[in-house]
Design a protein around this nucleic acid. Structure first.
Lengths: 129, 129
DNA sequence: TAACTGTATGATATTATGTAATACAGATGG
DNA sequence: CCATCTGTATTACATAATATCATACAGTTA
């Protein structure tokens, strides 16, 4: 499983890893039922402490992204997590506002911000270009 | 200056305030040269400690959003902060990817995520609808 | 039983977050 | 000059988040 961490970033390593794993699921590189690396194996791969990789999976499990099975391993959960439309809208609206404010503050206009979003979708999700 | 904080949110109060102030600038409610509330006044308004409001302004000053003048006050800086196009693109791309991954994980498609972004722009920035 | 799996606990360290009290120095109007 | 604003600095304190480390316990399976 290819996960790249920036060990010098101010963004916590656990948050980086969580985004990377979600990204692999969204890209369907990982599909429901697929097994992820074990707590100890991922710790070796990422040069992290097993306690840390376990927390990564625990947080993902709490969000309903993965399922942890003692003795067996960690597996990708089925489909999207069932949250209310209102909750989803609130979370994403807040995140979208953050992107907008940062972009506008940097002097970009709405179209340019939209273009960045589209490029990320094409390149990072769809693997086009 | 109207700033609404959610004191029960998991998002740090300083980060909330920073976003709100940037939002007011982006909406041009606050313009370059305008004076912001003093450290002590904002502390009263938001029921925060002066040390905390000072850190809010310090972080904003470090980002080039405001300028702190001893004896005078805190003022909105001129125009967008001059960062390299590459740096801006990296920051915004990362933020856009986060929005995309969350949205897709919640079962939305690209068009729905784009719609949320547009709605936030119209409602929160442009004050339309 | 051996060798994996996730899980739990306790200790330690660092950083972020937030409050609190106090003090210092710059600016300004009376 | 001086009182009263302004930002700034320092010290102390508390809590939570982040991350490491060692050890132990329990489930699964070849």
């Amino acid at each position: 499983m290819k996960i790249a961490l920036d060990y010098h970033s101010s963004e916590p390593l656990t948050q980086q890893a969580i985004l990377q794993i979600k990204l692999l699921i969204v890209k369907q590189v990982l599909k429901p039922g697929d097994r992820l690396p074990s707590v100890r194996q991922l710790a070796k791969d990422l040069s992290l402490n097993p306690t840390t990789t376990n927390r990564i999976f625990s947080q993902l499990a709490q969000e309903g992204v993965v399922i942890q099975r003692p003795g067996l391993g960690v597996f990708v959960a089925d489909g999207p997590t069932p949250f209310s439309a209102e909750y989803i809208n609130n979370v994403l609206s807040r995140q979208a506002l953050g992107l907008l404010v940062e972009g506008l503050r940097y002097g970009l206009d709405y179209e340019q911000i939209q273009a960045i979003l589209e490029k990320q979708y094409d390149c990072e999700i769809r693997n086009k270009k």
